[in-house]
Structures are given as structure tokens and as C-alpha cells.
Write a protein that binds this DNA or RNA. Structure first.
Lengths: 128, 128
DNA sequence: CCTTGACCTTCCAGTCACTGGAAGCCTTAT
DNA sequence: ATAAGGCTTCCAGTGACTGGAAGGTCAAGG
């Protein structure tokens, strides 16, 4: 398979796939013409990476997860640890965003949004 | 005031303050020795920026908000528009994160986290 | 045989909002 | 005289791509 095929099948853009090779996440073969030649296993890895990234795992987490996936002697505890850390970060991010959301929603609500210059949003930013 | 003072008072690191000058958000005076010399108005702007950034506004949004703040002939509608757009993006981000959170929490929950290699997390990443 | 178009290749630069570090000047206190 | 601490500039790196340029390859049609 050429890169276009795996791009379509994995849902990842060719640029991203080349990038993943660059940083050592995958290692496809090369055809005589220099084109990357992807095996089923490569496609499988890319799909794995796509799903892990969609869950918000960092590239380094993905690298670790992929290694664990391929390591028969892994323990599920190792995997779970990574996932739990990541879940915590997601929780924190959500909490932060919700605070912004609350504050901002109140300000937007209080703002008339008309032709006049008076604006609680600006006032809040200006004076805390 | 020197940069250290405004850093402390605004809560922004000196590096960030220099960066904000670089990109034209502020324009402090210079003392004879080349040090930046901040007026009260500069500090005020920095505090404004700090609060806007804390609400998640992009630098370009901050620039626009600052301009509106200083423009007596602004309308609150202009301000509100920016805030509403940003609020929408926050909503979207939260929604995305919550989806991750749901999926991931279920997987973490299903994972034994023991010495065995079997792991629903990896299985889910591998097979969709 | 030639051309066209759709692939593919590499490499460089840009994104966003900083942040770290190096090299060197200025000020204050000892 | 020197040491500490604060200030300056400039360059490079962060994460995870993404866009674009310049050029090689391949299959189909004329």
C-alpha cells in the first residue's frame, strides 16, 4: 500500500503519517521507486495511533502505549497508569474550561450587545 | 517601574511581558539605561491582558479587546461578538473533552490494572 | 513517443504563546 | 573591587502537525 491508501484507510493525512515515521512511531518499507510501502501491520499501528490521539493521548503516551501493546510481557497495570494520568489531565482541563465558561457566560449575559459603549465584559477585564 | 515590578504586580512573567511588547500589545517607555519603564497605564493593560488570557482569549482576541477598550466609540455589540465566539469554542472544547473523558473513564474502569497483560484499553485502541 | 494529471518524495518554514538559556550591561551593597 | 541581582538582546525549542515549493514516478490517452 502507498501512503494515499493508508491515509484513506486510517483517516490520518499523509503529512501526519510521514511525521509519525519521522519521529519513529512507524517504520514502513520502501519500494524500489522510493515510495513508502505499508504493510497491514503498519496500517494497524496507524489506526491504533489515530484512536489514541483521538482520546487525547500525547504522542509520547502513544509511543508508550504502542510499545506496551507490542510487548507480550506487559501488565495491564502499566497501561492503566498511563490512562489514569491522562484522564486526570482531562479532568483538570475540563474544570479549567468550565470556570472560563461560567465567568464568560455571565459576562456575555450581562452585556447588552447594542450600539452603546458600556460593556461589563470590558469592565471586568479592566478592573478584575 | 521596571519590568520586575510590573511582573510582580500583574502576575505575568517578565518574559511574557517582553513578548507582549514584541508583538505590539504594549509599548512601554525606555529609561536612559535602556531599561523598560512602565507607566500605570502599561500595568493596567498588562493586567487586562492577564485576565483576558486567563479567560482563554487568544492573543489576537486580546488585541481586539484592548483596542475596543481604548476606543470610546466602540459598541458593546462588538465586544459581545468576540466573547460569544470564544464562548462557543470553549463549549466545543468541553464537549470534545467530555467525550474523551467518558470513553476513557469506561476503559480505565474496565481495566484490571494488575500483573496480567490483558487490557481492554489496548484492545479498544487496537480494534476500534 | 509525448503529455497530462495524480501520485509520491524531501526539505523548509510557519503555527501558538510562550519559555529557557547564553552573553553581556547596569545598579547597589559590601 | 567585587559580588549579587536585575536588566538587555537574540536564538532556539516546545507539540503536533500543516502548507508549500521543487522535483521524481506512474498509468492512461492521443
Amino acid at each position: 500500500m502507498n501512503i494515499g491508501d493508508v491515509a484513506e484507510k486510517s483517516g490520518l493525512p499523509p503529512k501526519t503519517i510521514r511525521y509519525y515515521e519521522d519521529i519513529g512511531l512507524i517504520d514502513p518499507l520502501r519500494s524500489a521507486n522510493g515510495y513508502r510501502s505499508f504493510r497491514a501491520a503498519d496500517l494497524h499501528k496507524l489506526a491504533f495511533l489515530g484512536r489514541a490521539r483521538a482520546l487525547g493521548f500525547s504522542i509520547e503516551d502513544c509511543r508508550a502505549l504502542l510499545q506496551l501493546y507490542e510487548d507480550e510481557s506487559r501488565t495491564s497495570a502499566e497501561v492503566k497508569l498511563i490512562a489514569e494520568h491522562h484522564l486526570q489531565e482531562i479532568d483538570l482541563k475540563i474544570a479549567g474550561l468550565k470556570e472560563m465558561q461560567n465567568t464568560l457566560a455571565a459576562l456575555v449575559d450581562a452585556c447588552a450587545g447594542d450600539h452603546r459603549p458600556d460593556c461589563p465584559i470590558l469592565e471586568s477585564l479592566a478592573d478584575g
